[in-house]
Design a protein around this nucleic acid. Structure first.
Length: 555
RNA sequence: GCGCCUGUAGCUCAGGUGGAUAGAGCAACGGACUUCUAAUCCGUAGGUCGGGGGUUCGAAUCCCUCCAGGCGUGCCA
């Protein structure tokens, strides 16, 4: 990478300056190198002189001048070195160095953009984890897209990643589910029963009740809840979970492991973790309940883990669950939660610390709400009344690629407007097609070149100096940025940087394409442009791959 | 009340953890296909980065404060 090369040179020069006592470099000083916004400020700029001025008590420009004098550029990487403004050192990189970016892309292909950033790090990403009490809705879709992309990005940067879905198959919501189906079942068999508001209202409950009727006839009609509930709950949860798995499959989201909350109770993990925390003084008894002393670890109040009636709370199994995660050896555990859980965040961090891990070993990401729109108008959704647009509906209507891409265009902690009509539109308004179209167009060029047997694809004959237009240099520079975008996306756990980058790259390509012909009589020029355009296709394809969006060859 | 998040162009949002003159897309207006896909391109316009103070060579970015909005604040899940 060009940036690494520059950094190496600059750092060496810095050491030299310090050795020769030209100026002082404080220990731990970190050199900053950035791509300036304004073109006239060069390809790269460093503010090192500005930062070193104070400790040396002299002007930034003096530092910059002596630094530049020491800067040796044996292999001609720099075309120009300039001191500007208050003391920035601006660097212009020679075209020959830029051309090597294209060679690198051609050599690495699908591996261009992959890195070793996370080598040796074992990361778990847990996402969606919706309760098996109803079908997935749009909000879950966002969590699925973000979690899946994040996991892929982490893999691409060398992390070892496991994807997991936590099934909340214990607790009162499962009883409620069973009761809901049981009541509908009884109604179906002619009983006049009032259906309480606290039960699940959706049509899918009716469907499940019908299934129970088909399987068991009326044999549970006169059963007590005690007798019926386990059977009804088990069937309902299993069927709903099957649906969830199928929806996620259809969305292109796969898991390495489906983890049952219930198993934590069955194998005694929950009890064990409570005992452990009691022994370490993190859990105490008060008013007949067991409390987790989370205030000692930054939470605003202590939290109950076992209620006075002996029932455990959600937190109890979550503590057990996270202990289990760390026992499996993860260095970093990432949980994606719906934004409505945000009051829960601090106690979870506290829990992880109480379990003997560091706060940094856990990263809780909140995925904000999805505002579903149709032609700019809000689509009403009410969970209570059981009216919501399911993920399945959305995928059926707008397609997998559009849905995934749109879910990933915003940072996940800000609310997202999702317009169904816009998502279907095949125009520039719709960033998915805009990016995919760039890939398809290049593919089309490649097809045409093949058909005409122009033999443009012969790297050994390529004369890259033919790429001399400003747009061409700009495209190459943009391509060179891609690995860094992926790295930052992984470092900050922000997948939205990828779609943003891809949209910009696609934009630059479309403009270039419109104004310049790739295939043409000047074969030497054609070969060079073909080489460039192929590199663009690789990067677009790789980027879309990270998002789980297809890269079509034709549209 | 307390806690967390958000506030950038008419709308939806970027802004690479402090850099130089603030960035896209949409909407608006005006243009461009007999040549590799018009699902495209080109141009015009649009701003007190919520207000105020501070930190420093330098702030949309960090700190304080105020204003506005959202969410949370169960022995619920």
């Amino acid at each position: 990478m060009i940036k690494d090369k520059i950094l190496e040179k600059l750092n060496r020069t810095l050491e030299q300056c310090a050795d020769k006592d030209i100026f002082q470099v404080p220990s731990g000083f970190e050199l900053q190198l950035e791509v300036p916004r304004a073109e006239e400020h060069g390809d790269f700029a460093t503010n090192l002189a500005l930062n070193l001025a104070k400790p040396n008590r002299c002007s930034p420009r003096d530092i910059a001048t002596s630094f530049v004098e020491q800067l040796a550029d044996g292999d001609g990487l720099f075309l120009e070195v300039e001191i500007a403004g208050p003391g920035f050192i601006n660097l212009v990189i020679s075209p020959s160095a830029w051309y090597k970016v294209l060679d690198e892309i051609a050599r690495l292909q699908q591996n261009y953009g992959r890195s070793e950033l996370g080598r040796g790090k074992y990361v778990q990403v847990e996402y969606v984890s919706a309760n098996p009490t109803g079908p997935l809705h749009v909000g879950h879709g966002r969590g699925a897209a973000v979690g899946d992309a994040l996991a892929t990005i982490l893999q691409a940067t060398g992390h070892k990643v496991e994807r997991e879905y936590y099934i909340n198959d214990a607790g009162t919501q499962i009883d409620t589910l069973g009761r809901s189906v049981f009541l509908r079942y009884q109604q179906l068999l002619g009983r006049q029963i009032e259906f309480p508001e606290t039960c699940y209202q959706g049509d899918y409950i009716q469907v499940l009740a019908k299934e129970m009727k088909e399987i068991h006839g009326d044999s549970y009609l006169d059963s007590s809840e005690e007798e019926a509930l386990p059977v009804f709950s088990e069937h309902a949860a299993r069927r709903i979970l099957e649906g969830i798995r199928k929806d996620l499959e259809d969305f292109g989201v796969h898991y390495d492991r489906w983890f049952s909350e219930n198993s934590l109770y069955e194998n005694g993990t929950v009890d064990r973790v409570i005992e452990t925390l009691k022994a370490s003084g993190h859990i105490y008894e008060k008013d007949g309940a067991l409390w987790f002393r989370s205030t000692a670890l930054g939470d605003e109040k202590d939290r109950v883990v076992v209620r006075g009636n002996g029932m455990t709370t959600y937190l109890a199994s979550d503590l057990a669950y996270h202990q289990d995660k760390y026992l499996r050896g993860f260095d970093l555990v990432i949980d994606l939660w719906g934004a409505d859980h945000h009051g829960y965040v601090e106690r979870m961090y506290a829990g992880v610390v109480a379990l003997g891990k560091k706060r940094e070993n856990l990263k809780l990401l909140l995925v904000q709400l999805v505002n579903l729109l149709r032609k700019g108008k809000q689509v009403t959704m009410s969970t209570r009344a059981g009216e919501f647009v399911t993920l399945e509906d959305v995928i059926d209507e707008v397609g997998r690629d559009a849905a995934r891409f749109i879910f990933l265009t915003r940072r996940s902690d800000s609310p997202l407007d999702f317009d169904l009509e816009l998502a279907k539109e095949k125009s520039a308004d719709n960033p998915v097609y805009y990016v995919q179209y760039a890939h398809a167009r290049i593919s089309s060029i490649i097809r045409l070149a093949d058909e005409r047997q122009l033999n443009l694809d012969s790297p050994e004959k390529v004369d890259l100096t033919r790429l001399s237009l400003p747009e061409e240099m700009a495209l190459i520079k943009q391509l060179s940025l891609y690995p860094e975008v992926v790295e930052n996306s992984a470092r900050f756990l922000e997948p939205h940087r990828i779609p943003y980058y891809l949209t910009q790259l696609a934009s630059a390509f479309h403009s270039y394409y419109k104004h310049n012909r790739i295939i043409q009589d000047d074969l030497s020029l054609a070969r060079a442009r073909y080489y460039l355009v192929k590199a663009i296709r690789i990067v677009v394809g790789n980027g879309l791959g990270l998002l789980g969006v297809s890269a079509p060859e034709q549209m």
